[in-house]
Computed example of a mutant assay.
Amino acid sequence: MGKLNGKVALITGGSSGIGLATAKLFVEEGAKVVITGRNQVALNAAVEELGTTNVLAVQADAAEPQSADKAVAAAVEKFGRLDVVFANAGIGGNTPLGGTEFSVFEEILKINVTGTFFTVQAALPHLKAGASVILNGSVLAKAGSPGWSAYAASKGAVTSMARVLVSELSPRGIRVNTIVPGATRTPIWGQPEGLAQFESTLTRAVPLNRLGEPEEIANVALFLASDDSSFVQGAEISVDGGAGSSPFGAPIYRQK
């Protein structure tokens, strides 16, 4: 018996990385899953990889509120209900002070913040008591990483927004929690050579001395989506190998 039997989940940004890993796990645990993404080719590949009729892919741009409405409507039409929302869609991007175009900065905020809010708003009419809303934050919200102002601000906004959503949705019995991933091996970092450079640098700042895997984030999403977390409300669960809680425990600071 799967932990999500009978549940229907919407996962934005579900065609790769954390979103796809979560979709796989949710399906294995008995859920029907709707994934969204901007790239139809990537969505088709994800559906083929998931290999089940319990998955629906909807081309949608997280930056456009009407796309959220479209995805939610498709989920309810196909599967009849909605129980879990994982607002996972997001983009990174370097936005150094003194060298950033307005459009680049705005796009990051539009997708990561506005898109998250309107995803939840679109789903709300269909969510009942016991439903779970999961937001995707980031350790970079507090890390002070140079050149990442827009991304850090967007993820800080997500964690702040979650607290407000908790106050608004608790009377309806709907839970809202935030996953805070650290450095994770996902396509958000670009091509493989970019990931390799990123990994060699970042692992020295992670106490567990490695990147996280998308499946490790998905395991936490499963916990928050399932009834195992029925009294977990307003939590921010870090999945970062200790980078946020104990930065001086990282290999870069260890005595040889």
Rank of each mutant, 00 (worst) to 15 (best):
Pro125His: 03
His126Lys: 09
Leu127Glu: 03
Ala129Tyr: 01
Ala129Asp: 06
Gly130Thr: 05
Val133Phe: 04
Ile134Met: 10
Gly137Pro: 02
Ser138Asn: 05
Ser138Lys: 12
Ser138His: 07
Ser138Arg: 10
Ala141Glu: 14
Lys142Cys: 00
Gly144Arg: 13
Gly144Phe: 07
Gly144Leu: 09
Ser145Ala: 10
Pro146His: 09
Trp148Lys: 11
Trp148His: 08
Ala150Tyr: 05
Ala152Thr: 03
Ala153Glu: 01
Ala153Arg: 01
Ser154Thr: 07
Ser154Pro: 02
Ser154Met: 08
Lys155Tyr: 04
Gly156Arg: 12
Gly156Ile: 07
Ala157Glu: 03
Ala157Ile: 11
Val158Met: 02
Thr159Met: 14
Ser160Gly: 15
Ala162Asn: 04
Ala162Tyr: 04
Ala162Met: 14
Arg163Trp: 00
Ser167Met: 11
Leu169Glu: 03
Pro171Phe: 11
Gly173Ile: 11
Val176Gln: 04
Val176Arg: 09
Thr178Asn: 05
Val180Leu: 13
Pro181Trp: 08
Thr184Cys: 12
Arg185Glu: 15
Trp189Lys: 07
Pro192Thr: 07
Glu193Gly: 00
Gly194Glu: 14
Leu195Ala: 02
Ala196Ile: 02
Gln197Leu: 13
Phe198Arg: 12
Glu199Ile: 04
Ser200Cys: 00
Thr201Ser: 13
Thr203Phe: 00
Val206Leu: 06
Leu208Ile: 14
Leu208Asp: 00
Asn209Ile: 00
Leu211Arg: 12
Gly212His: 04
Gly212Trp: 02
Glu213Gly: 00
Glu213Met: 12
Pro214Cys: 06
Pro214Asn: 09
Glu215Asn: 08
Ile217Gly: 03
Ala218Pro: 03
Asn219His: 13
Val220Phe: 01
Val220Gly: 01
Ala221Arg: 14
Ala221Cys: 12
Phe223Asp: 01
Leu224Thr: 03
Ala225Pro: 03
Ala225Trp: 07
Ala225Tyr: 08
Ala225Val: 10
Asp227Lys: 14
Asp228Tyr: 10
Asp228His: 10
Ser229Val: 05
Ser229Gln: 07
Ser230Asn: 11
Phe231Trp: 15
Phe231Arg: 11
Gln233Thr: 04
